[in-house]
Nucleic acid binder design. Sequence first.
DNA 1: TTAATTATATGATATTAGTCAGATATTTAA
DNA 2: TTAAATATCTGACTAATATCATATAATTAA
Lengths: 237, 237
Amino acid sequence: MSSHSPNIPCALCSSRKFSLFSDLPEAQICAISDHKNLISHRRGQILYYEGTKPLGIFCINSGVVKIYKTASNGKEQIIHLAQKGDFLGYAALLGEENYSNSSMIIEDAKICFVPKEVFINSLLQNSEFFRRVAKSLSHEIGVMEEKLTNATQKSIRERLAYVLLQLGNSYGVEGGGNQRIDLTLSREEIAGIVGTATESVIRLLSEFKKDNLIELEGKKIIIKDRRGLARLSDFYA
Amino acid sequence: MSSHSPNIPCALCSSRKFSLFSDLPEAQICAISDHKNLISHRRGQILYYEGTKPLGIFCINSGVVKIYKTASNGKEQIIHLAQKGDFLGYAALLGEENYSNSSMIIEDAKICFVPKEVFINSLLQNSEFFRRVAKSLSHEIGVMEEKLTNATQKSIRERLAYVLLQLGNSYGVEGGGNQRIDLTLSREEIAGIVGTATESVIRLLSEFKKDNLIELEGKKIIIKDRRGLARLSDFYA
DNA sequence: TTAATTATATGATATTAGTCAGATATTTAA
DNA sequence: TTAAATATCTGACTAATATCATATAATTAA
């Protein structure tokens, strides 16, 4: 399923500029580069499972990964979609806990694995790097607070509209005045992001289409009216 | 409203053993001690508001503080109840962002304020301390993931049962085979923790009482049947 | 103490969203 | 290519929970 690719050095990595590694000094980049492992993954592959022990961190070079928890009712709550430049698993590592979530490739990906010791040593040798990692963790907490508040205080319609806008921001491709979400998600996965039933997503997408807010082309969603969605999402920005 | 108390040194602080400061070396304890400020707060007082700039961190010596976000519908989502030994505001500080939430005293409290520079210097001078803070941030992320998943995948009844069990764990006083939650929360605040309407909390509490799971004495809740609540919460532990 | 305010409680109703069932479309595997 | 499996869609129904209204109790202020 997964395959090792030519191990391009971090110094030449095209996604590094998007990542926490972006300003690391030469020496540390080399140390990490020497110990990392670039692996190609196909859609559907699991990167790690909730409850298992983290042995290092993952750094996404390309592709998209969903981070999710499986609820007691069997449904997936998607916490986050991670892409190019994002780090995965460093919270579990720094928290000295097992993974609190699972992760699965949803768009073919190339991902580097950096062993725990190498990553931790980099942090300890470079407090500026440590600060950036802490900053990222802290930011994540604020994001989660926002998600929790939306989940409890907003309707499914509002949340779906908001999710579409966010997907547009992260994966949108402009064209003909519209914005095409260039990411293949099943209705069930969209439901997992919103935190609702698959049928509800299907119904609401039909409704949004009828109201000329979006266009549907199979699994692809094209946003036609961002303002309209923003109004619906109760999120004016 | 608030008053300065005799500025007891951190070295003698009774709540330090519960906090991230617990294993700090003597020299740093003194540095912090020299710059901190112990202030007494009454129920209802605001410690800080969402959107404002953090100037330091708060360390709770005694009392209880609610950390919450105000949703666009005006309702409060309570993120967390903080007590003795808990740190507040360090995520915003390390995230170099304004506060992502507000905090209000709900049980008269004594709280130390440690200025930003003093706290950051301690982190940079002591990487073990920095690691503990990062560990705490990381743990918090896992907790928030769990809360989000519960919010989207569980019913209000399940969530209320679970919240009562948690309040019992944190503020419970055993007696007569029962567990009294020794914390005054309005029904509205409980609704804010669960993420529901006040009337729903009132109704469900009445139902739990009818089913002999709890006892109600004004605002105080006595848990009579932890197993029953655990079963109801769909959380078997 | 009394009045005013606020919190709690309960009923009635409306709305939202979940579940179940069946039809069609799409994807995958033989 | 065809069959099987899976995903999407739609309708009908149900259940959960929010909202609104009103009554009572508790708390606060005059």
